[in-house]
């Protein structure tokens, strides 16, 4: 049995992993890409359209796949990395249900993130109350074009609850997931387009639209789509007698409580650190279980030949992940050059 030695083993075949693998193969390195699932693309496979340009998610994945095909990267799908051990020459990546490990002179971890489990916020009644869905469910409905199956032909109103599992002390996620605000606006516009006569509400505590064109989309959602933004978060969700989602919310700008019944309520679930860890590998993690960029750049990346991409380091948009992947590929390239390729 031949030992499989690679210059770089990339773990995780999402957008970040694919991009870093392509960039390194372009520079002439022998790269292996290891993905646990049958298809490349990661979380992006579950999304329909992307903010802020309503680009097709599939198109982005296909483009990366095409580049990957012509790049010469050795792609291994259905291959789940179980553990990673360090040795003098590099790293061994153990695979589930396989005897031979992958050997890499360097490894790039692009394992991505987990999505917050909305059942932990019991007050929203996810999985209990009919009509309450998550933003991930929304993307699925959008992809399948199955809104009418869930809401019929003439629904009157929809709501989007921001910050579910983000900036929340109770679930120990004391950080902003960064992408949910703009996702809520995108999804609100999409459902308004599908049901023009329905009223669409966004219930927020702060709107964080940090990127250049996000504010533009927000304005468009207000002016052209007539989406209502209500400052205040939802509580006491129940089903009304008509089977709608009834709940209370304080309009904090008016200082008055509202009672409202809607056909659907979507919870904007946040980004959490990936929970599957590699037992033998001690990762530099911060209090949120994300890889800490400070520790990583100073000690880990330079010396040990282990690199991190995208959402392993915290919430990131797809664009930011792709940019980060390109930047990390330069670091890996330099490392390989400096360590006698």
């Amino acid at each position: 049995m031949t030992d499989q030695w690679y210059d770089v083993v990339v773990i995780g075949g999402g957008v970040g992993g694919m991009q870093v693998a392509i960039a390194l193969a372009d520079r002439g390195h022998r790269v292996a890409l290891v993905e646990a699932h049958a298809d490349l693309g990661g979380k992006l496979l579950g999304y329909a359209k992307l903010f802020p340009s309503f680009e097709n998610a599939e198109q982005v994945v296909d483009e990366l796949k095409n580049q990957l095909d012509s790049s010469g990267v050795a792609v291994f799908t259905n291959t789940k990395a179980r553990d990673i051990t360090e040795n003098t020459k590099g790293y061994d990546v153990m695979i589930e249900n396989a005897d031979t490990p992958f050997h890499g002179r360097t490894i790039v971890l692009a394992y991505g993130f987990d999505i917050f489990d909305p059942t932990l916020k019991e007050e929203y009644g996810y999985n209990i109350i009919r009509g309450v869905y998550s933003s991930v469910d929304f993307e699925k409905m959008m992809k399948e074009k199955s809104f009418s199956k869930y809401f019929g032909e003439k629904p009157q109103g929809f709501g989007f609850v921001h910050c579910v599992g983000s900036r929340d002390e109770k679930v120990k996620n004391n950080y902003c997931s960064k992408v949910c605000c703009i996702t809520a606006i995108k999804q609100a516009m999409e459902i308004k387009e599908h049901y023009p006569s329905a009223d669409v509400f966004c219930f927020y505590m702060d709107l964080r639209l940090h990127e250049l064109f996000f504010e533009k989309l927000y304005k468009q959602a207000q002016k052209e789509y007539g989406i209502h933004f209500i400052r205040g978060k939802v509580s006491e969700v129940a089903n009304s007698q008509q089977g709608k989602v009834a709940f209370k919310v304080e309009d904090t700008l008016l200082s008055r409580p509202l009672r409202i019944e809607l056909d659907g309520l979507f919870l904007m679930v946040g980004i959490e650190a990936y929970k599957g860890k590699f037992p033998s590998l001690k990762l530099p993690l911060n209090e949120f279980d994300f890889v800490d960029p400070g520790i990583e750049t100073l000690a880990t990346q330079g010396e040990r030949g282990i690199f991190f991409v995208g959402t392993t380091k915290g919430p990131r948009s797809i664009k930011e992940t792709l940019q980060d992947a390109t930047y990390v590929s330069m670091q890996v390239h330099n490392y390989l050059l400096n360590h006698g390729k």
Partner: peptide, 25 residues
Amino acid sequence: RSITVHLPLDSLYQKMVNAEPSLRL
């Protein structure tokens, strides 16, 4: 003190928004 929101929203609001769309902003 609580306000019960009825859908579709108030007709005067719709009228104002149609007459002055910047109100939505």
